[in-house]
């Protein structure tokens, strides 16, 4: 049995004794997830911290049968997503809509600002492209962004994503599809901007 499979049972038995294991095991994933949602390292750390604290309090209150039957990974993503949404709501942080003028900014991010003479085939550019792809993902509307990240970056099943987002499977499917289409569009536009400039 892997640690991941064994965790719910051990947490049900001895929460305080096993909670540190839970944090060590999931901290990179939750932090990455929060970072992809917020694109800000400080925010991501605070979100991940809050998510674990909330998880602890919830586990403390749950009866042990409920803890034992938890799908831990999906449950933790769900908490992280909720914490992120609450923060965004509170701070109006980086909640970028498709029609916002920020789009040009994001597209411009495809250019390396400190490297105006672009070297198209260099490894460096590839890295930047990936970073810029993350920037573009961050500009997607929230409903597309979280679906896209959970489904394609974190690699969860459609059913798990539906459970996390509390949406019908059909909605998740169509949002996942639309998210990819929207992202392709954004990429094309940013390249277009690149060519024009």
């Amino acid at each position: 049995m892997t640690l991941e499979q064994a965790l719910p049972a051990s947490l049900a038995l001895d929460l305080d004794g096993c909670f540190e294991q839970l944090v060590s095991h999931y901290q990179d994933r939750l932090y990455s997830f929060a970072y992809r949602l917020t694109r800000n390292r400080e925010d991501a750390e605070e979100v991940a911290q809050d998510a674990f604290v909330r998880a602890y309090r919830a586990l403390k209150a749950y009866p042990s049968e409920r803890i034992r039957s938890l799908s831990m990974r999906a449950w933790l993503y769900q908490i992280t997503l909720n914490v992120t949404r609450n923060r965004l709501r509170g701070k109006k942080l980086r909640l970028v809509s498709m029609s916002a003028p920020n789009r040009n900014e994001a597209a411009a991010a495809f250019d390396a600002p400190d490297n105006p003479e672009r070297q198209p085939d260099s490894v460096l550019e590839k890295k930047e492209r990936r970073a810029n792809l993350a920037e573009l993902v961050a500009t997607l509307p929230e409903r597309y962004r979280s679906t896209l990240i959970l489904r394609y970056v974190e690699g969860l099943s459609l059913e798990e994503v539906a459970a996390i987002l509390k949406q019908p499977l059909g909605t998740v499917k169509s949002n996942a599809h639309r998210a990819v289409v929207a992202l392709r569009e954004l990429i094309s536009q940013s390249r277009h901007a690149e060519v024009k400039s």
Binding site: E20, Y31, S32, A44, F52
Partner: peptide, 17 residues
């Protein structure tokens, strides 16, 4: 998207939690 590298959580996260 699948090749997005996993970010390392900062070392301060676990003690803070």
């Amino acid at each position: 998207l699948r090749r997005f590298p996993e970010e390392k959580a900062p070392a301060t996260l676990l003690p803070a939690v």
